[in-house]
């Protein structure tokens, strides 16, 4: 699973560098995010701007990552594309996650 990680102060920015998070790669996604989460202790921002398709298995994997991080370390999502947004809206997960349209200074400073 191709996810790059960048440290921005206390924050970890994880960029999914492939266009799908589906049933075929949901486990690999969770495993890679587990590795990434060990690289810091602060917030984790997951950049989904390159992801054009997610199914309910992919969504479940994102939820699992959020739960694994625990209540003290929020998982925030960045740059949802229209199809991904639709899945979050239909499952009402858009009311659970903090969503950011784009990376900006406010996001970085609000550590």
């Amino acid at each position: 699973m191709d996810i790059t990680v960048e440290k921005q102060g206390n924050l970890l920015l994880a960029r999914v560098a492939q266009d799908r998070i589906d049933a075929a790669c949901a486990i690999q996604f969770k495993d890679r995010m587990r590795e990434i989460s060990l690289e810091g202790q602060g917030r984790v921002v997951l950049d989904l701007s390159q992801v054009t398709f997610i199914d309910s298995s992919g969504l479940g994997a994102v939820v699992a990552v959020r739960k694994a991080l625990g209540g003290e370390r929020p998982l925030e999502l960045l740059g949802l594309t229209p199809t991904v947004q639709k899945v979050f809206r239909l499952t009402r997960m858009d009311s659970i996650f903090t969503l950011h349209d784009r990376w900006d200074d406010g996001l970085q400073d609000a550590v």
Partner: peptide, 18 residues
Amino acid sequence: DPPNLGGDLPEGGFGWNL
């Protein structure tokens, strides 16, 4: 039926609702 989002968040059960 839509999974309940209160309490422990569900990681599955969305498929048939979608």
